[in-house]
């Protein structure tokens, strides 16, 4: 089965190399994730990434595109996404014009319209575009929030993801020029079908550890002081231990730190948290719940020594 004309993108030397290069692009991955990316590139299999909102699922595709120095093709899923929006569509206007031209040229009646269903009349939508990309390097294909689409769409994906080809009834089968690096993300609002998952390598991105989150924050926002970064991440860590309707992810951490910077806050305080609460908790009920838990107590705990943000420097390096 192996080597049947399938050409995988240029692999990386080792898991560590991937990890370093991701870090250089500002994406701090744990070794588990780096291994999954490494294997996905090496085996030419899509990655299926799940996790809570805001833990960097989509980001991994964007970073990989930068890292591989190639095009990022993105397909945002939604209910009712169909083949004409995801795979291909015929360019009806051009087809009709071609007919008129043929008539004007006096093409034989039996021949008229013979070539209407050729690849030149095909409008490429993201999936087809990713397979037929003419670039020097295979593109990165991001299929975002698969759980939002419906089952019919999952069925379209099966052929694309297992054989990297698309069958168009009017033409036949179009094969991939290069095998793209494919990332599928899901927020788990519903379970995606097993047949789809089976074609992918699975990875669950959890909330990061304190050290890793500090490192991520410092990588994304270098201007934030190590001290404040430590306090922010510790506060987030404490917050996530509670059961909120929507727990804040890393995206919220970064937004929040940015807001604190903009306000010129150098050290976390109850007042500062209260002012910027909208960056962390996006539901009124969650805000009320936090106040119930005692905002002051949480801030105090976050300020307590014992969590050394400089440990994060090791992760960074």
């Amino acid at each position: 089965m192996a080597g049947s004309g399938k050409e995988t993108p240029p692999g990386f030397g080792s898991i560590d190399e991937i990890r370093e290069r991701l870090a250089a692009e500002g994406y701090i991955a744990d070794r588990m994730l780096a291994t999954a990316v490494f294997l996905s590139v090496s085996l030419g299999k899509p990655m299926f990434v799940e996790g809570e909102p805001g833990v960097g699922k989509t980001e991994i595709a964007k970073v990989m595109a930068r890292l591989l120095d190639t095009e990022l093709i993105r397909l945002q899923c939604y209910e009712g996404l169909d083949s004409s929006a995801a795979l291909y569509e015929w360019n009806y206007t051009r087809q009709l014009l071609e007919l008129r031209l043929q008539e004007a040229r006096g093409v034989d009646r039996a021949e008229i319209g013979r070539n209407l269903f050729a690849e030149e009349f095909l409008l490429q939508r993201p999936l087809l575009k990713a397979l037929r990309s003419e670039g020097a390097r295979p593109p990165v294909l991001l299929i975002d929030e698969v759980d939002r689409s419906d089952e019919e769409f999952e069925a379209f994906l099966l052929e694309v993801l297992s054989d990297f080809q698309i069958t168009i009834p009017e033409i036949g089968t179009l094969r991939a020029r290069h095998i793209p690096f494919v990332v599928l993300t899901s927020n788990r609002t519903r379970e995606v079908h097993d047949a789809l998952k089976r074609r992918c390598l699975y990875h669950w991105i959890d909330y990061p550890s304190f050290a890793r989150e500090t490192a991520i924050l410092r990588a994304r926002l270098p201007e934030v002081e190590l001290r404040l970064a430590g306090q922010v991440c510790r506060f987030m860590e404490l917050l996530r231990q509670h059961d909120f309707y929507k727990r804040p992810g890393i995206a919220e951490t970064i937004d929040w730190a940015r807001a604190l910077l903009a306000l010129g806050v150098a050290e976390l305080s109850e007042a500062a948290v209260e002012e910027t609460l909208g960056c962390i908790l996006k539901y009124r009920g969650d805000g009320d719940k936090l106040r119930q838990l005692g905002l002051g107590g949480l801030v105090e705990m976050a300020l307590m020594p014992g969590h050394d943000p400089s440990a994060a420097a090791a992760v960074c390096a």
Binding site: R31, T35, S42, Y202
Partner: peptide, 21 residues
Amino acid sequence: FIDIAQRDDFHAAARATLVSR
């Protein structure tokens, strides 16, 4: 592609390929 003597890497590879939920 991976060094299976490295336990963590082997673990990560096994998890990525064998688990889907």
